[in-house]
């Protein structure tokens, strides 16, 4: 029986599972900062992380990090250079997996972090940062967001980070060279993208029913079963080892327990 955990701790565990041993991961802000450290400490000891600030790491930071530039993330880094170095790795195809967040997502994994609509008003968000670049050029991307129905929309108001083509075939009919989104992790479920680049429900988190997840989307979403991938499963709970690591990397729970 696993210990008690928060939805964000489970999201970190699920995000970490998306990093395979040997991968180079492009890590941005917030939960992925913790997820890479968990992955490299457990199943992916030969993975590497790059940060657009210019940092390359292959080990966890020895201390809590609010941002990629916190000094523990610089200490004993593989290298500390500049953004052109890091983005060039991305552009030439060296990045296996990148992490992205979003205020809005549509069925093709287009993400919006720039402008959202609220009634008649437009609300300005911080913008792309490196997200558009990661979305365009990483071999695959993993998307993380809170599970809130208002975030799931037929058409995002602004495509900050491009997903798959609406014409089918994922990225074949799309100008971005990367592989596009492969997984969405929310605070209630995980999703994949099918051969046409459309979201489908892969697993529901423990205690959440697949039906309740599906009703949160404004379109009729397929499940793994619908597309012949087998039944919708229950998302793996974080292991005791993962929880211990998450709580060591985020001791006050700033990112994962609030």
């Amino acid at each position: 029986m696993a210990s008690e955990y928060t939805p964000r701790e489970l999201m970190v565990s699920a995000a970490a599972a998306e990093i395979e041993d040997g991968d180079t991961a492009f890590v941005g802000m917030r939960l992925p900062l913790i997820a890479f450290q968990v992955a490299v400490s457990t199943h992916a000891p030969n993975s590497m992380a790059v940060y657009e600030s210019g940092v390359v790491r292959d080990s966890p930071a020895d201390g809590f990090i609010h941002t990629m530039c916190d000094l523990p993330n610089l200490n004993r880094a593989v290298s500390a250079t500049g953004m052109i170095d890091i983005m060039s790795r991305l552009q030439r195809g060296d990045i296996d997996v990148g992490f992205l967040g979003g205020a809005e997502i549509d069925r093709y994994g287009n993400l919006n972090t720039t402008w959202v609509r609220a009634g008649d008003d437009e609300i300005r968000l911080p913008g792309s940062g490196g997200a558009c670049d990661i979305a365009c050029m990483a071999d695959r991307t993993v998307l993380l967001m809170p599970h809130e129905p208002r975030r799931f929309t037929e058409e995002v108001h602004y495509v900050t980070s491009p997903g798959h083509s609406p014409n089918g075939g994922r990225r074949t009919d799309h100008p971005a060279p990367g592989g596009g989104p492969s997984t969405l992790v929310t605070s209630k479920a995980t999703f994949g993208f099918d051969v046409d680049g459309e979201l489908y429900l892969r697993s529901a988190h423990p205690g959440v029913s697949p039906e309740e997840v599906l009703t949160d989307f404004p379109w009729e979403m397929n499940t793994a079963e619908d597309i012949g991938e087998g039944p919708v499963t229950t998302t793996a709970q974080p292991t005791d080892e993962e929880l211990a690591l998450i709580r060591a990397f985020d001791p006050d729970g700033f990112w994962t327990r609030s």
Partner: peptide, 19 residues
Amino acid sequence: PTRSLLGSDVFERSGLFRE
């Protein structure tokens, strides 16, 4: 030149970049 931006509204709406 870059392989980034195409397909995004960063490209479409900034009015700065050229394809």
